[in-house]
């Protein structure tokens, strides 16, 4: 239907129209007078013979985020991440973090190298969860590759994303030359990157094929890739949900990976995907089972079973059942134990 609010009541649009009419009655004479004055009181009209040059885009992939890495912005961000964001993440998602020890060696180095974190992506919560879960020293030097078309399409959104999450705009489909140059510069400067190789949130709860961007960037910059599996955020605030639910989540970090010799981007990307899938298995079962299944090549793929339709959804719910993460279920009411 056209309206999903109560259709028997006058719609907000109808109310607004009525109010609009009243206001218009007052403002119209003034507006008319201004209108008659025309330019320069009003914006100029464009002569027909003139080709209007396309505005140099300053939004989307062309949004300049340099300001967000100045020290003042860093300072504000630190406050935001450690204050409201951490509180919100804890309250909403209570993330449990596993596998940080796999990064321990690198963290011990005098000059910890920049890393590329590649989590799976189910929810906007992922970024916030990661902003909290990524261990220091990388957390304070983390930039997040965010979809240019979604986070950087409006100025206010872009400003918020850049300030709060240190997001940088990136095209979903292809990592353009400009984006990849910018990221290389950042990594060379010691910034770590978080990128969702799936290119977007899962539309149905299962993962999507990994795009080659992360692998390519790793090969180009020499930074190691850290596979990460985030479990549970999809159930809390998946794509299409209007407001988040409260529940628990799990974040599992994997061991840093680098492209093997004579391994091309595509194969490396597939390996990252497999690794994230295995981490997923690990988060659902346990390390040993996951290893075994991986060795037998039986890990459930991130992208889910091949079949479509309801069975896919069905399999997903099965999978969610297995996990400890997800919606916080109400405790079954039990009779008080009064002893025998």
């Amino acid at each position: 239907m056209a309206r999903d609010d109560a259709p028997w009541k006058p719609s907000n649009l109808a109310k607004a129209a009525r109010i609009g009419e009243l206001v218009e009655r007052i403002t119209h004479p003034i507006a008319k007078r201004t209108y008659r004055k025309g330019f320069p009181y009003l914006p100029p009209t464009i002569p027909l013979g003139v080709e209007v040059p396309e505005d140099k885009p300053t939004l989307g992939a062309d949004y300049d985020t340099d300001w967000a890495r100045r020290s003042s912005a860093k300072f504000v961000r630190k406050g935001l991440v450690n204050g409201p964001i951490r509180l919100a993440v804890r309250g909403l998602a209570s993330p449990k973090v596993y596998g940080v020890d796999r990064l321990h060696d690198l963290a011990q180095l005098k000059d910890p190298p920049p890393l590329i974190f590649t989590p799976n992506h189910h929810s906007h919560l992922d970024t916030a969860v990661m902003a909290v879960a990524v261990p220091e020293p990388w957390r304070s030097k983390l930039v997040v590759a965010a979809a240019a078309d979604y986070f950087f399409d409006k100025r206010w959104k872009a400003t918020m994303a850049a300030l709060a999450l240190n997001a940088i705009p990136i095209d979903r489909e292809v990592t353009g030359r400009k984006s990849s140059d910018m990221i290389k510069e950042l990594i060379d400067d010691g910034w770590s990157l978080m990128i969702y190789p799936e290119g977007g949130r899962s539309p149905d709860g299962w993962g999507q094929d990994f795009k080659g961007g992360a692998a390519y960037l790793s090969a180009r910059t020499g930074a190691a890739v850290v596979p990460v599996f985030i479990d549970g955020t999809g159930a809390l605030f998946g794509k299409g949900m209007k407001r988040p639910k409260i529940g628990t989540t799990k974040v599992v970090f994997g061991a840093p990976m680098r492209a093997l010799e004579d391994e091309n981007t595509r194969r490396f990307s597939a390996r990252i995907e497999a690794e994230v899938a295995e981490l997923g298995d690990e988060s659902l079962t346990d390390f040993w089972t996951a290893r075994q299944r991986s060795a037998r090549n039986e890990s459930t793929k991130l992208t889910g079973p091949e079949y479509t339709g309801w069975r896919r959804q069905w399999a997903l719910s099965e999978r969610r059942e297995m996990g400890t993460a997800g919606l916080r279920r109400r405790q079954k009411r039990r009779w008080p134990d009064i002893g025998n």
Partner: peptide
Amino acid sequence: FAVARLMSPV
């Protein structure tokens, strides 16, 4: 819609 309506005469 309201904003558009108020701005459109100008």
